[in-house]
Design a protein around this nucleic acid. Structure first.
Length: 830
RNA sequence: GCCCGGAUGGCGAAACCGGUAGACGCGGGGGCCUUAAAAGCCCCUGUCCGCAAGGACAUGCGGGUUCGAGUCCCGCUCCGGGCACCA
């Protein structure tokens, strides 16, 4: 009785609406296994997913981050990423673009090699098996991938061109070799790039990274810092990614100031971002590794300095870079502060790092926490040169005053007193420059990219060393420098590559003079493989060039790239650098590889990251087998906002599967005679608009919700749906559940693929409501709602509202003000 | 410390430009069908008070602007991510 039974519908009529008057016990569920296998086969046979690489008139390059083919197989994270990209690609195709969506394998690298070592396999034999397993899993996922253009970075026909890329950079002077302190992972027994070190630990295995001095190949990515940073402003990229790159590049503006050493011709150059505080510089500090450190040391200090330098060298990288109690030692020398004219002591301390700036600083203990701490410990003078609104030049400093506002003024700074910090910075820098003491400079945190790896499973660096000719690049015609099949590929602690144990491999005649010479025995970083793979895809089967000029012009730069943000400062930065370098070398006509990049979120489970140790890893195979790839794909897209990720719950799939079953049921039973219902068509066009708007912003979860809502409308219509009501829905669902949509499309009588059927056209006149609901508020509190024809104005709405007793009772006296938001709300202020 | 995100029912989440908070889905409750179960279908489901009609309270916390704030402003807390003895 009462409210519960008011809207209740007879059950039989419900059933008829679903099953089209057929036997009421017949289930509506479809069989995804059969449907999916059928269409995967058909698409492969008919080349549905292939694009005309040479004739496309509206090219659209949709890229996803190619996976590293692990032995564990495809991860849900992979599928989540790929599905999001696939939906975008399929949608673009239906909008009329010629979509190229390739995929391949990032098969070289420490990952694969370490796994092979662990299980006692050989990477050259293991990798093809893993690739085959991935291929099987990916084919079941129903991605619209043009597999003809597959790449595998560990194959000769690919790494030959990786070596070619190295040679181009070398030719342009962007590759150089130097002995340097590098990050050494004692566990992986190889050098790591700075980007591969997280807080002093190897980002791969977590081992504490050590410093070693080795001869390494570097790429001059540092020279591109300004450009890499500047271009970020114009790229259509996720903000999280741009911000991570900005932080990593770490630009800071300041000045390089020269301090002449007293009674010597030596000059200590320091970098500072606060030239305005130079009057407060009471001592200088050199990094222990600084070349002048020994030069400036007086005889009396020599033993102490040597001991300190020795102590520093033996530190591991984590300790070296961690914040701890300040230590240091005086050189015994002095240098002149150009601003004050005073001679200030020169110290050596390990809180100054050789790799940043000039490796030397002017210490302003009054306004830098570290300098303050150091000055206190070693009883060095602390001078205030900035004071806040409530302070004077004489107010004692109990701690370093670092932050500042426009109210902070310079003090104890001679004729610069009373300038604001910002003014001081500009005027002081100018004054220092005019007098030859300083130059305005920009400093970057970004360092050159170390690409040498003392490992086996990668492309050999194409360089030969000859006693007579020196460092000789391998001629391009002699590429690839093949990676030999060796048994003893295990790395060791020597810092020498496994290839260096094979004389028969590294002893070669010099390409220039023919004299006996020796190959470089290091291989290149895996990130070089992936820094240019997007250039290779369109030309993947071309053995003559790295990338065909015409195809590259047609397809690149990439229109849409979707991937994980864990690659923000590795792969994505390196790819941009290599692209810029190839542009500068005249090989390509664009200097940014990815016009649009979107970072997707992370799939977690039970509120935690998936990991084998927690036992909460999802095996996609199981879910695909139980629910079908279409349901699994759609669920992954439904569980949260794509760009934020979400929590995977097995139970959640059932709701999506029910939706697809219902879609299947209404397509199968759709009525052909008669005309579609006006009210239903209105809802349909509203959904077309919603889904069309949501797809470009990757708002997949709300697009799915809207389609489900429309499906509910169809079911509640208490009649069999008309073909005209379901057909466009099939097209909207197609990017999400491609197999089922294709099946439905055939059932609806079409002979060509739904992906070539276009995108449903939105008709605003059909979507328009004739009657609208207006919320009525009294003093801002919602007290009821009225239904009025869409065209009526404020007066009629107010009249309708006052006619409702439950609203009118709150309106005591004459309204003071009426606020009317057309089509939405009426607020009566009394 | 600096820079990016974020916080909404039992749960995952919606909410255009400041305008009906909680769409959609899961879970839960009740019902239909069934010999029974499963499946399917129908209804209900933010919290509190109330027999009901209805009312009050609700978007991490504290203020503010506004006729009206999840949304804007100021000040915090907590969570995720990036950078960090970076001068």
């Amino acid at each position: 009785p009462g409210a519960h039974t008011k809207k209740k519908q007879p059950a039989e009529r419900r059933t008829i609406a679903y099953l089209g008057g057929m036997d009421t016990t017949e289930p509506v569920a479809y069989d995804p296994t059969a449907v999916e296998a059928k269409w995967q086969r058909a698409w492969a046979e008919q080349g549905t997913n292939q694009v005309d690489l040479d004739g496309a008139t509206r090219p659209f390059y949709s890229l996803m981050m190619f996976p590293y083919p692990s032995a564990e197989g495809l991860h849900v994270g992979n599928l989540f990423a790929f599905t999001g990209s696939d939906i975008s690609a399929r949608h673009h195709r239906m909008l009329g673009y010629n979509v190229f969506q390739p995929l391949g394998y990032d098969a070289f690298g420490i990952h694969s090699e370490n796994y092979a070592l662990k299980v006692g396999a050989h990477p050259m034999e293991m990798t093809p098996k893993n690739v085959a397993n991935f291929q099987r899993q990916l084919e079941r996922a129903g991605l619209m991938v043009d597999w003809r253009q597959k790449v595998d970075t560990s194959q000769k026909d690919y790494y030959r061109w990786t070596q070619w890329v190295f040679l181009q950079l070398h030719k342009q002077g962007l590759a150089y070799k130097k002995a340097a302190a590098v990050n050494w992972c004692p566990n992986d027994k190889t050098v790591l790039a700075n980007e591969q070190v997280e807080g002093g630990f190897c980002e791969r295995c977590g081992a504490a990274v050590e410093q070693r001095f080795l001869e390494q190949w570097f790429f001059r990515i540092g020279d591109y810092a300004e450009r890499l940073l500047h271009n970020l402003d114009t790229l259509d990229w996720s903000e999280v990614t741009r911000s991570a790159q900005r932080n990593w590049i770490g630009r800071s503006e300041g000045a390089e100031v020269a301090f002449k050493v007293t009674e010597s011709d030596d000059v200590v150059r320091v970098f500072t971002t606060r030239p305005d505080t130079i009057f407060g510089a009471t001592y200088l500090v050199l990094a222990p590794e600084h070349p002048l450190a020994s030069t400036l040391t007086t005889d009396g200090q020599r033993d102490a300095v040597l001991a300190y330098q020795d102590q520093t060298t033996r530190q591991d990288i984590i300790t070296r870079k961690s914040v701890r109690e300040k230590t240091g030692v005086s050189t015994g020398s002095f240098a002149r502060n150009p601003a004050t004219g005073e001679d200030i002591p020169v110290w050596i301390a390990d809180y100054v790092l050789m790799e940043y700036g000039t490796g030397a600083i002017m210490a302003v203990p009054g306004h830098d926490e570290r300098d303050f701490e150091f000055a206190q410990k070693f009883a060095l003078p602390i001078v205030r040169v900035v004071c806040g609104p409530d302070e004077t030049a004489e107010t004692p400093l109990t701690e370093a005053l670092t932050g500042h506002t426009s109210d902070h003024k310079l003090v104890n700074s001679g004729r610069f007193d009373q300038l604001s910090v910002a003014e001081g910075k500009a005027i002081m820098t100018q004054w220092l420059e005019d007098n030859g003491y300083a130059a305005a400079v920009v400093n970057f945190r970004l360092h050159d990219w170390c690409v040498s790896r003392q490992r086996y499973w990668g492309p050999p660096i194409p360089i030969v060393y000859c006693d007579a000719c020196g460092t000789v690049p391998v001629p391009e015609a002699q590429l690839p420098v093949e990676l030999p099949h060796i048994v003893d590929f295990k790395p060791d602690d020597s810092g020498i590559s496994p290839l260096a144990r094979h004389e028969e491999w590294y002893n070669v005649p010099c390409p220039t003079c023919g004299a006996p010479a020796r190959r470089e025995t290091d291989v290149s970083d895996t990130f070089l493989d992936s820094a240019w793979y997007f250039l290779r895809y369109p030309s993947a089967r071309n053995d003559a060039v790295a990338f065909d000029a015409e195809r590259t012009t047609r397809w690149l730069p990439v229109n849409s790239y979707i991937g994980g943000n864990e690659h923000a400062v590795l792969h994505l930065l390196y790819s941009r650098f290599v692209t810029m370098a190839l542009f500068d070398g005249g090989h390509i006509s664009f200097d940014e590889p990815f016009t649009q990049f979107r970072a997707h979120g992370l799939i977690i489970r039970d509120g935690a990251k998936m990991s084998k140790t927690k036992g909460n890893v999802i095996n996609p195979d199981e879910y695909v087998a139980e629910w079908g790839a279409d349901s699994f794909r759609t669920y992954l897209m439904f569980l949260g906002p794509y760009q934020e990720g979400g929590d995977f719950r097995s139970q959640g799939i059932s709701g999506v599967r029910r939706f697809l079953d219902r879609l299947w049921g209404s397509v199968r039973d759709a009525q052909r005679g008669g005309a579609p219902d006006r009210d239903v068509m209105r809802k349909l066009h509203q959904v077309i608009r919603k889904v069309s708007d949501d797809l470009p912003t990757l708002a997949y979860n709300t697009a799915i919700a809207a389609m489900m809502e429309y499906m509910n409308t169809l079911r509640r219509a208490e009649r069999v749906a008309h073909v005209g009501e379901v057909e466009p829905l099939v097209q909207l669902v197609a990017p999400f559940a491609p197999h089922l949509a294709e099946e439905c499309w055939r059932v609806l009588g079409h002979t060509a693929s739904v992906f070539d059927s276009g995108w449903p056209a939105f008709d605003a006149s059909l979507a328009a409501e004739s009657e609208i609901e207006i919320a009525v508020q009294v003093n801002g509190k919602t007290r009821g709602r009225v239904h009025v024809p869409v065209e009526v104005g404020e007066a009629e709405v107010l009249k309708a509202a006052m006619a409702d007793a439950s609203i009118a009772k709150f309106v005591t006296g004459e309204p003071r003000k009426i606020i009317y938001v057309p089509g939405r709300l009426l607020n009566i202020v009394v």
